[in-house]
Design a protein around this nucleic acid. Sequence first.
DNA 1: TTCCGACAGTGGGGTCGCAAT
DNA 2: ATTGCGACCCCACTATCGGAA
Length: 503
Amino acid sequence: MLLADLVATSAAVAATRSRKAKTAAIAERLAQADPAELEVVTSYLAGSLRQRRTGLGWRSLATLPAAAAEPSLTVLEVDAAFRRMQALSGPGSAAARTAAVGELFRRATPDEQGWLRGVVTGEVRQGALDSLVQEALALAAGVPLADVRRAAMLAGSTVAVAARAFAGSDALAEVGLEVGRPVLPMLASSAPTVAEAVAKVGGRVAVDTKLDGIRIQVHRDGDEVVVATRTLDDITGRLPQVVDLVRSLPAERLVLDGEAISIGDDGRPRPFQETASRTATRTGVGTHVSAYFFDLLHLDGRDLLDQPLAERLAALDALVPEPHRVARVMTEDADEAAAFAARVLESGHEGVVVKSLAAPWEAGRRGAGWIKVKPVHTLDLVVLAVEWGSGRRRGWLSNIHLGARDPETGGFVMLGKTFKGMTDEMLRWQTERFTELAVDGTDGWVVPVRPEQVVEIALDGVQRSTTYPGGVALRFARVLRYRDDKPPHEVDTIGTVQAMLGG
DNA sequence: TTCCGACAGTGGGGTCGCAAT
DNA sequence: ATTGCGACCCCACTATCGGAA
């Protein structure tokens, strides 16, 4: 298959807003793929390369050679080119990579160059990702979507089951949970209060402590242990204590789901930054990282995936010692759940996850069985500058720079940015408003403004920063509303924000 | 007809590893 | 030694489609 054909499909998918039409276009292209190229085509139609890392990013593609007039690249040639680039490392690899990019892009037409750049930077933006490709696979192969989804969950990717989809439902059904091969993780949606989460889940629920660490999935087969992250990255070598712990459990084959986090000598959780640092480093030592498990998917030959959570938890409790499980209550009473959540926060943890005790394990259904609840802080800050948006926000002033008041200088200290929480109406309004407040000094991207507009910001908390002058940055900041009832000299001070670090 | 679940898009800060400077 | 890029950890929120109610 020519890359040009695939790029044409991507353009057609981008050109319509109808999901059905997108799915149909993708399905048509999938049906035309040879068996040998099916995995590459499936991956490309979802907007991703098959190579996890290429060493290429937006910067590497800033300058490109002149484009070809006629299409000639095949999808397999493109895959081979990226495979070669992935293999490059060591001194001189950057130059070799640049040469390889030149070779590939010289053979691409302007449209193909645009698509190649998008797939490398993860910005194909055609309005279809993995989920719609799963639908397209089901459509093209004439198999139920649920079969495709389940096989993809168990195999850890959609690409891995594309060929089986075309071989039929029976072939898909042969894909089972394999100890040692990570499955796609089950995700949680969120709710503002515990009471709402309990009501939404319904019936008897488990309320788990939500730890602010790294999600881990641990597989053990005899002495062989594999630790994987949420994106199924293998981090076994970085968490030796977790490996030892799981080896010590009284079972031979198992699959556990949990969280890795640094806990201080006082028994309270360390900031997320410490856990991240510790788990990101391959060789270094540092604070101890402990594992706390909250689910069990397999135990000694028995798959628990399809069992209700209540049964999985019973098996978990029998297997894993209490100090290595997340604290939990099981109840039907929203007040009891809320009281537990209050104790969890008191102990320094992030929040709770409310789970249906009747629900089986189901990846990729954010919203069904698990609902997280975290407290929200708010600050009133002033807007210091705005950035022009991209994609669907092109032409709108989008990402705002936030500042707290510095009582000593009478000025403002930047704490971070946010583009979240804005409706289209707010984007329209702020584009007009900040155009009025703009001062000289724009670089064409960032527009500095007079610090006069106050905004109420919601955030999960603050963290240490080496980027911002106050030494603190906001975590997950989003706009609640613009405030015209509050003058800039009354917004929160940098001292107030710094004090939240200790909290 | 209205409601709501699922999906994609738009990016945020921090940390490390690696190659180049 | 320092710098810049790429990769990946955590993540919130809105708009929209299309099936469910």
